[in-house]
Each structure stands twice: as C-alpha cells, then as structure tokens.
C-alpha cells in the first residue's frame, strides 16, 4: 500500500487548520505537555541526584507528549471527523483508508516530533542533564510510538460516541501508560511480577527504548525485547483498526 504525498499533505493541511481553530484541542496539544513536565519534575521519586531526576523528567516528558499530543488529540479528531461524516465523504473520493487516517494524524505527529525535539534540547540545558548518549533508539522509538498511538487512538475512537466522551474513553490507556510504562516512576521500583506485566503494556517498549537511548547503558537483549513489544503492539493495532474502526456514526 502506497501513500500519495499530495493527498496526505492536503488532508494534513486542513486538519492543521481545524486544530488551530479548536481552542480546547490546541491547549491540550500545546500547554498540557509543558504542565505535565513540571508535574513530572516534582513527582519523580526514588532517584538520587539532580541529573537522574532531570533525565527521568525528560524521558517521562517524551511519553507525555506522545500521550497528550498524539493519543488524546487524535481520538477527538477521529471522532469529530466521523460524526461530521467527513471520513465517510473522504472515502467516496480517491484517498485510501490509510491515507485518510494518516493525513488526519499528520499535524499531531509533526507537532509531537517538534515538541520532543524542543524537550530534548531545551530540557537538557534547563535541567542540566547530559544529552542522550545513544540517540538511535530514541530516534526509532519516537516515530514508532507516534504510529502506535495513532493506531490506538483510531481504535479508541471506535468506542467513543462523541467528542465530549473522549475525555473518558482515553482515560484507561492514559492512566495505564502513566503508571505502568514508567512515565512517573521507574518500573524497577515495582514488585517483580507487576514489573514484568508492565513491561508488556503498549507504550512500555517505546519508553524503555527512550530511557535506554538516553542513559546509553542498556543491554542488547533489553533493547530487542522493547523493540519486539512495540512491534507486536503495532501489529495488534493495525489488525484491530482494520477490523473495528468506524468510518461513520452509529445510526
């Protein structure tokens, strides 16, 4: 399946216009990550030293950007377009299903990448944290996380009746990820059984790769396990979206 760049750009551009005109969505996408980074900074526990706290804040911040800018934002976007019959109308045209979903996700994806870049560079300077020692796992994990969460948001939209209820339907994955994928606290402070369960959560692989890239001291085995977890969730979400995504409102 190929994606036509012209069609993606046209869809992404109109979606960006809509995002800019939607004050609520825009503030979730622009202000919430900043707020959450400060929350993370004050709530990260169980670590010694300012640098370690700073590093945990920034890796957690990357997770927060992914959850807020990609996941929360896109669930609302998919639901809103579905309820206005925009998705159905687009499907009568030349754009393919994947192009429609990807084009709609484009502004959120670009915004998340930009925010993460700012977070890494500006955050390191402000919190006096060394830059990531091994950028490669981060460079791989962030785009993978965006794709995975775009899939998760498409899936969540299927169980979301309207834009207002997106606040509730996004909560389970948001909480699960915040607590279980190591956004607020390192998973190694958890009991072993719980920790190994948490390693299998959707965003856990992405977060493990980000942390490993930043500290640069993870073993190959850990990296492989994290990558496989992420790939497995990506495959699951592709399958689930094809099966359960709703292109038009329930009648």
């Amino acid at each position: 399946m190929t994606l036509n760049p012209g069609r993606l750009a046209a869809l992404g551009r109109s979606e960006l216009t809509l995002l800019v005109r939607n004050r609520a969505a825009l503030s979730v996408a622009l202000l919430m990550p900043l707020v959450m980074v400060f929350v993370l900074r004050t709530s990260v526990t169980g670590l010694d030293g300012a640098a370690a706290v700073g590093e945990a804040t920034l890796t957690g911040g990357i997770g927060m950007v992914l959850m807020l800018v990609v996941y929360m934002n896109l669930v609302s976007a998919y639901v809103a377009r579905r309820e206005e019959l925009v998705l159905k109308r687009l499907r009568t045209g030349e754009a393919g299903d994947l192009e429609i979903l990807a084009g709609t996700a484009l502004p959120a994806a670009v915004l998340a990448l930009g925010q993460i870049a700012v977070l890494v560079v500006a955050g390191s300077l402000a919190l006096d944290v060394p830059l990531p020692r091994d950028p490669l796992p981060i460079a791989a994990a962030v785009p993978a996380g965006i794709v995975l969460l775009a899939g998760m948001s498409a899936l969540t939209s299927a169980v979301t009746r309207n834009v207002e209820s997106a606040g509730i339907t996004t909560l389970p994955l948001f909480l699960l990820t915040s607590l279980g994928s190591g956004l607020f606290l390192p998973t190694d402070v958890l009991p072993d059984a719980l920790a190994s369960f948490c390693e299998l959560l959707p965003l856990s692989g992405v977060m493990a790769l980000v942390r490993a890239g930043w500290s640069g001291d993870a073993g190959d085995g850990d990296l492989t396990a994290a990558a496989l977890t992420t790939l497995a969730w990506m495959a699951i979400s592709v399958f689930a979206v094809q099966r359960w995504f709703r292109w038009e409102p329930r009648r």
């Binding site: 012209g6 069609r7 750009a9 046209a10 869809l11 551009r13 109109s14 216009t17 809509l18 005109r21 939607n22 809103a80 377009r81 206005e84 925009v86 687009l90 045209g93 030349e94 754009a95 192009e99």
Partner: peptide, 16 residues
Amino acid sequence: PSDLSVAETVRMWGGV
C-alpha cells in the same frame, strides 16, 4: 468539517 471555510474545503477536496 464545519470549521473550514468554503475555499479551504475546495482546496482540501482538490488535493485528494
């Protein structure tokens, strides 16, 4: 989309 203008709608649809 109800928040797009007529011209923006035409541009978007023209792009696909």
